[in-house]
Design a protein around this nucleic acid. Structure first.
Length: 275
DNA sequence: AAATGTCGCAACCGCTCTTAC
DNA sequence: AGTAAGAGCGGTTGCGACATT
């Protein structure tokens, strides 16, 4: 916590929807100064919001690189798959969906996917019920209910809502999965190359690729690093096959994730990297 | 056209974790 | 070691838009 402590403003913070003017103020400030201490943002910008609200607005709405609009089928499938293993760990799920926020995914789950899964589960249950001649009904009221539902491709909503893995186990599995399928590139489309000039990162294998060449072959095994320009991000997002091992990431990055992918490749601290 | 119901989304709330002192 | 404050996360709420009666 490097930020200075600020006195809590005596006037009440504004609540509710953000006006375009407020958005502009916040956007301008963050793009110019970056952020490190959210509580200082309202003071420095003159916004009548609390730091928490500013942070949320930036992360969920103003942050560059956010995708808006409906979720694709691929995104939907990703959420469903990840939710089965991670449960309601929306921020972790969001890490796998570039440009989507945890809040957006959470909302989408509650408004669309939850019902979809419930319907699917219902259909499956009915189908089994028919095939077993009504045995399911008896089973459901008995203590063997769990073993029955676990055979389903989707467990019940109640089970899924509560299917939170033990944290350590979850982390281990996450790391294992990453080791098998590390990305060749990391995207940070709103960083500027200028911000890295003269820093160690520039000479590391992080930056040893010609990213400005539109013909760069991202299938090439050697490609790893930070991608910096919007057009290429756009291009890659549309051209990479679904099963590509090229992953596209947007800030904020998870420090552990970076270290997993690039062990010992950069001597900069995370704070320096994450401008 | 008006009243009522439903849905989707943005934002708030409360909790936990981390860090500085 | 204890405490206070900030950050982050997941759950929940409130409101506007749209649909239905």
């Amino acid at each position: 916590m490097e930020c200075k402590l600020f006195d809590k403003p005596k006037n009440k913070h504004k609540k509710g929807l953000w006006s375009p003017d407020e958005d502009q103020k916040l956007r301008n400030y963050i793009l110019k100064h970056g952020y490190g201490c959210w509580s200082s943002v309202p003071i420095n910008t003159g916004l009548k919001r609390n730091g928490k609200s500013c942070r949320l607005r930036w992360i969920n709405y103003l942050r560059p690189g956010l995708k808006r609009g409906t979720f694709s089928t691929e995104e939907e499938e990703t959420i469903l798959t990840l939710h089965q293993t991670l449960g309601n760990k929306w921020s972790q799920i969001a890490h796998h969906l570039p440009g989507r926020t945890d809040n957006e995914i959470k909302n989408y789950w509650h408004s669309h996917l939850k019902k979809k899964v419930a319907k699917l589960y219902e259909t499956e249950t009915q189908a089994k019920d028919v095939s077993t001649g009504g045995e399911m009904e008896n089973l459901n009221s008995s203590s063997s209910q769990n073993s029955t539902t676990q055979n389903s491709s989707f467990n019940s909503i109640e089970h899924m809502e509560g299917s939170l893995m033990d944290t350590d186990q979850s982390t281990k599995q996450k790391n294992q999965a990453q080791n098998f399928n590390l990305p060749k590139i990391l995207f940070a489309e709103w960083f500027s190359l200028d911000q890295f000039h003269g820093k160690d990162l520039q000479n590391s294998s992080f930056f040893n690729n010609n990213f400005d060449n539109p013909n760069t072959n991202f299938q090439d095994e050697s490609i790893r690093g930070l991608r910096l320009d919007d057009q290429t991000v756009e291009r890659e997002m549309h051209t990479q096959p679904n099963n590509s091992s090229v992953d596209i990431f947007f800030p904020p990055f998870d420090q552990d994730l970076l270290l997993d992918y690039f062990p010992g490749e950069f001597s900069m601290s995370y704070d320096e990297l994450y401008i």
